[in-house]
């Protein structure tokens, strides 16, 4: 059965993946990490990831405009990379997001997004 480490290994198998982590976005804490992080600092990357998710969930009018229209993922593109954030929906109380950093020239956004959706679902699916 896939655990947290297995999930991150699979995330690193996504074409172009440079680094991956699972971040608690209440506290900006990286629960688990693997590979590289921007500026080689997983803690700082996690804090930044948390700010982005909170901006979208708490301070944006886009999210929750319709009941049960929950945030699924956030995609940030830069000139050199893709940063994908996929919310992990657990039944119990947790506020977790799966973060994968992709090299832009090697990665495929659509493929990566589909793979992350599957990973996040498998992590908590019965």
């Amino acid at each position: 059965m896939p655990g947290v480490d297995h999930c991150l290994q699979e995330a690193m198998a996504i074409p172009g993946a440079v680094g991956a982590s699972i971040v608690d976005y209440t506290t900006g804490f990286p629960v688990a990490t693997t590979g590289s992080a921007p500026n080689a600092d997983h803690d700082a990357a996690a804090a930044g990831t948390a700010s982005v998710v909170q901006a979208a969930t708490d301070r944006s009018m886009i999210v929750s405009a319709v009941p049960n229209d929950l945030l699924e993922d956030l995609i940030i593109t830069t000139a050199g990379g893709y940063h994908l954030l996929r919310l992990v929906q657990t039944d119990f109380d947790s506020r977790l997001v799966l973060y994968v950093w992709l090299d832009r020239s090697l990665g495929n956004l659509a493929v990566a997004r589909r793979r992350m959706q599957k990973l996040a679902d498998e992590l908590v699916a019965t």
Partner: peptide, 10 residues
């Protein structure tokens, strides 16, 4: 799942 348990315990 193992993932749920680990995340919950962490």
């Amino acid at each position: 799942t193992q993932g749920e348990l680990e995340l919950c315990v962490l």
